[in-house]
């Protein structure tokens, strides 16, 4: 959107993981629970994470992006501004909560549900996959079918004409950041439930991987990002089993470089280009 990649999004995500963690602490949950208590706790954490990330994203837009946009600054300036905001947020959290890894309580008992071949399918993974698919589906429908979704796409495709249609660009950009923040918050809770830890720089590698997934799928293409993320996950998992898990990140970055070199439009990027031609 807006032909600009929010490189501080990883810190928005990080804030979400902290919000989810503190909510769990606040609720006083330190052991696995089940039933309605679990659902309620997860929903509360999701709400807190989404609110924290969404709020942070809106503030970020106001402070780090809008002043540049108003002056018609270059995309490079926005990128530098984002990196600055990113460092700032990381350091604030590092100073406040330390540089050590913080553990999440295990609120979800992780039992093996069934096996596919040699792979064990655990409850937490099923939950995360289902939740991620639901979030993607809702976002996709939202952007495709609602009035605000149309406003977002119009602004992305041609901001000046969008104004001529009566789109309030400032509002649309703000809501886009809010939306992105809420999604990051949801993702942050899933990360917490799955990996049960966070740190001030948790977003960094994830951010680059999300970027890789987006590039792989085709920048600016929601469905492409989903496909790209899935493809990257498979490549990483397969690569890890061949060369060992310590090579996982290397594999992801090699994928990023290779895609940028040979197919910068991504997997679904060409379809998008054709539609725009």
């Amino acid at each position: 959107m807006l032909k600009l990649i929010n490189f501080a999004h990883s810190e928005i995500f990080m804030i979400g993981t902290f919000a989810a963690l503190f909510t769990m602490h606040g609720l006083g949950i330190d052991h696995a629970i089940g039933g309605f208590a679990l659902v309620g706790a997860l929903l509360l954490c999701a709400l807190a994470a989404a609110a924290a990330s969404g709020g942070a994203a809106v503030v970020l837009e106001r402070v780090a992006y809008r002043p540049l946009r108003k002056r018609g600054a270059s995309r490079l300036a926005a990128l530098i501004s984002a990196i600055g905001a990113s460092f700032f947020l990381q350091e604030v959290f590092a100073l406040r909560y330390g540089r050590d890894t913080l553990s999440f309580p295990r609120i979800l008992s992780k039992t093996v549900l069934f096996h596919i071949g040699d792979g064990a399918v655990r409850t937490d993974k099923v939950l995360v996959v289902v939740a991620a698919l639901v979030m993607m589906f809702v976002l996709d429908r939202f952007v495709a079918a609602t009035r605000l979704g149309r406003g977002i796409r119009a602004t992305a495709q041609d901001p000046e004409t969008a104004v001529l249609m009566g789109v309030n660009i400032d509002r649309v950009v703000m809501l886009t950041f809010l939306l992105g923040g809420i999604m990051a918050g949801g993702g942050a809770l899933m990360y917490g439930v799955l990996l049960e830890q966070t740190r001030f720089d948790v977003g960094f590698v994830l951010g680059i991987k999300a970027f890789t997934a987006a590039v792989l799928g085709g920048i600016g293409n929601l469905r492409g990002a989903l496909v790209g993320g899935f493809a990257l996950g498979l490549i990483e998992a397969y690569g890890s089993s061949v060369w060992g898990t310590q090579w996982k990140d290397v594999i992801a970055f090699v994928v990023l470089v290779v895609v940028l070199m040979f197919r910068p439009t991504g997997i679904l990027g060409e379809a998008l280009e054709r539609a725009r031609a």
Binding site: R150, R153, Q157, L164, A275
Partner: peptide, 26 residues
């Protein structure tokens, strides 16, 4: 006040119907 801008400003990724719906956005 509504404008059909220079170069038409059609949203290339949207269908004809969606483009028209954008006209009614405000």
């Amino acid at each position: 006040i509504c404008q059909a801008p220079e170069g038409r400003g059609i949203f290339p990724g949207m269908s004809v119907v969606e483009n028209l719906e954008m006209g009614a956005y405000a």
